[in-house]
């Protein structure tokens, strides 16, 4: 452990890059620096603790906690997972177990705004594919990627239950209805495209208060070490 954490991570990431089919993911080494300051602020912790009385077990607070952390940090890093686990008195493996099951949680840093395009049957019938293609073209990114400036991330979801307004797209919290391919430019240019028009409840925060900052989160290294396959990155195969 004489090596500084940064060096180790770099070495680790290099080894992952080099690896091919028989690449071995090493789980013996921590991917986060144990000495780094905690990523969860006291306010976030307090908010999570506020959910404790609602459930009989602390583990049940995991989903709300993950929502809160993701809203605060933009994504859930390995370090955040370990801290949530300590807070809820469970094992970190339980946290990654749960996170990886749900498509809504990200272990990688993402953009300020996350565009969720629906690809359910109604949206596909009404031309959702064209909208998705247009989004990809205009943003210059593929699914599950983030633009270089960290403004947008693009994901797809199976059904957003907005089928009567198909095709639909959610940007952060706002559902955009009957989006046509030609509307995409206007939609992306609109600064208020992620703002909810109704009064909010203050139980959860608005998402992505912080911008994705790859340098501060060691996210590059974390992305590389991430889980080997990812339902969220399931493309046409």
């Amino acid at each position: 452990m004489a090596q500084p954490a940064g060096e180790r991570l770099l070495k680790l990431s290099r080894s992952v890059k080099r690896a091919m089919s028989w690449q071995t993911i090493n789980r013996n080494l921590p991917v986060m620096d144990p000495k780094a300051p905690p990523v969860l602020t006291e306010a976030v912790r307090e908010k999570i603790r506020g959910f404790f009385p609602r459930y009989e077990t602390k583990r049940a607070v995991l989903l709300p906690a993950l929502h809160i952390v993701q809203d605060a940090l933009g994504h859930i890093s390995w370090k955040a997972m370990a801290e949530i686990a300590a807070l809820l008195e469970i094992q970190p493996s339980d946290v990654i177990d749960t996170i990886s099951f749900y498509t809504h949680f990200w272990t990688h840093s993402k953009g300020k705004k996350v565009i969720v395009a629906c690809r359910s049957v109604s949206c596909e019938v009404m031309g959702g594919v064209a909208v998705l293609e247009e989004l990809k073209k205009r943003l210059g990114i593929d699914e599950h990627e983030t633009t270089a400036d960290g403004a947008y991330s693009l994901v797809t979801e199976e059904c957003l239950a907005g089928c009567d307004h198909a095709p639909c797209v959610i940007i952060n919290e706002k559902l955009h209805k009957r989006v046509r391919a030609e509307d995409v430019v206007k939609l992306l240019a609109d600064h208020a495209n992620a703002r909810l028009e109704i009064p909010r409840s203050d139980l959860f925060d608005a998402p992505a208060k912080t911008a994705a900052d790859p340098a501060s989160q060691n996210s590059q290294a974390e992305d590389l070490v991430g889980t080997t396959s990812d339902v969220r990155e399931m493309r046409e195969s």
Partner: peptide, 13 residues
């Protein structure tokens, strides 16, 4: 063989 992430588009595409 190959890392899944290195493949452009899906394998079928």
């Amino acid at each position: 063989t190959g890392d899944r992430k290195q493949v452009e588009g899906g394998p079928i595409a």
